[in-house]
Amino acid sequence: MTDDILQQAASWRADGRKVAIATVVSTWGSSPRPVGSQMAVDDSGSMIGSVSGGCIEGAVVDEARKAMADGEPRLMSFGVSNELAWEVGLACGGKVQVYVEAVE
């Protein structure tokens, strides 16, 4: 699965699109996707892969766009203590850290 995601990222890049990759780097408690899970996003909003059960992908895409714009990688944390997590609904009660980086 990871192969498809990285290959898609490389192929978008080869087409001249801006691309960012998000990776789950740590989890606590019951989180829906294991460490190493990835998604790739391009500048038109196309995406492949996942870093949760669908609850935080929207927020990750927003950060991915910022990373594409300024080239700075970001570390995002989601969890029960995080207001954003409630907003975007990480209902499983777990915590997850996602690293977002542009491909350049």
Binding site: D3, L6, Q7, A9, A10, R13, I21, E101, A102, V103, E104
Partner: peptide
């Protein structure tokens, strides 16, 4: 991630 590093990673995986 640098594009050439991604290329090397994909080559190793292939």
């Amino acid at each position: 991630m640098k594009t050439d590093l991604l290329g090397r990673l994909l080559a190793a995986k292939a």
